[in-house]
């Protein structure tokens, strides 16, 4: 289970790390209790500053995705699944996109455009 970092991307490095960890947690690849590498190990493997990894972990901890404990390190807490059918529909969308040969980045752009153009429903 690996993450990648694109130094040429316009997305901040800590955000890339944070987003991928969240995706793995949401997908169930990372489960509650799984330990993440230490800041030092992950920053050495990626060849980036330790502060960048530390910020990603802080953001994850602030969102309740992980928790950091002394002598244990950073541990995944219970993943938060979106309520209703959204999680299931998201998986169907990915599966359909793959069948139709749509690249992952194009799919992400598609979802972003949908978020920008759709009007929010009035709450009941």
């Amino acid at each position: 289970m690996r993450i990648t970092l694109d130094l040429d991307s316009s997305t901040a490095q800590y955000e890339q790390i944070r987003a991928q960890v969240v995706a793995l947690i949401t997908a169930g690849a990372l489960q509650e209790g799984d330990r993440l590498p230490t800041v030092r190990v992950l920053s050495a493997d990626l060849g980036i500053a330790a502060g960048t990894v530390a910020r990603a972990y802080r953001e994850l901890e602030a969102a309740g995705q992980v928790t950091t404990r002394r002598r244990v390190g950073t541990v995944v807490t219970a993943p938060t699944r979106p309520p209703g059918r959204t999680h299931e529909l998201a998986h169907q969308l990915v599966s359909t996109a793959r069948d139709e040969g749509i690249a992952p980045q194009d799919l992400i752009d598609l979802v972003r455009s949908a978020l920008l153009t759709s009007t929010p429903h009035a709450s009941a």
Partner: peptide, 16 residues
């Protein structure tokens, strides 16, 4: 040798 290149990878597993 430190990692080089614009695309980097890392294993998400603890190592001690």
């Amino acid at each position: 040798p430190r990692p080089s290149g614009s695309r980097r990878e890392a294993e998400l597993a603890p190592r001690g």
